[in-house]
């Protein structure tokens, strides 16, 4: 079971993982990214490259399933305006035992951060907004899977 979903409405970890939870493995691991109140941020706005995004995320899932023995994997990403406290991304992996699911989950989010065509803009209480700069530490984390 492999699933990629781009949502312009609110998402929940539980709903995104429900299929994986019932797949029959002994292990389900996930990561949820949540919008942080970083120095007055009220919301983030996510832009993406629609004709590229799904294919790109599917390739990340394919790479994970080629590397680990998984029963399934999901990636769901929000686009549009996401307020502080709301999930922006959910990735999950199911396997027979924990090691595969745990490692695949880290791989999925690390690769998503450097490979998938999304851009974040922070919105502040005073009405201003600023594009988020890419972090070198994200490249380093992604490269450790090479």
């Amino acid at each position: 079971m492999k699933k990629v979903r781009i949502s312009n409405t609110p998402i929940t970890t539980e709903a995104e993982l429900s299929t994986l939870a019932g797949i029959g493995g002994g292990a389900l691991s996930s990561f949820t990214g949540i919008v942080r109140d970083d120095g007055g941020v009220t919301a983030i706005e996510l832009e993406h490259y629609p004709s590229m995004t799904e294919a790109c995320l599917s390739r990340v899932i394919e790479a994970a399933t080629a590397r680990w023995s998984l029963l399934g994997a999901v990636v769901t990403h929000r686009v549009g305006i996401v307020p502080v406290g709301d999930p922006v991304v959910v990735v999950g992996a199911a396997s027979l035992h924990r090691a595969e699911a745990l490692e695949a989950t880290a791989f999925l989010i690390d690769r998503l951060k450097t490979d998938a065509p999304f851009w974040k803009r922070e919105h502040y209480a005073d009405g201003t907004a600023k594009w988020v700069e890419a972090k070198l530490s994200d490249d380093t984390r992604s490269e450790r899977w090479a």
């Binding site: 490259y49 004709s51 989010i109 998503l112 065509p117 851009w119 974040k120």
Partner: peptide, 28 residues
């Protein structure tokens, strides 16, 4: 990205139909 595949600046344009230009990605 050339036809929705990430490429570097030295990639050849031949046969490409769509060239996307953007800053480093910041999703997740």
């Amino acid at each position: 990205a050339l036809d929705q595949n990430m490429v570097t600046a030295d990639a050849l344009l031949v046969d490409g139909e769509e060239l996307a230009i953007f800053p480093p990605v910041t999703g997740g």
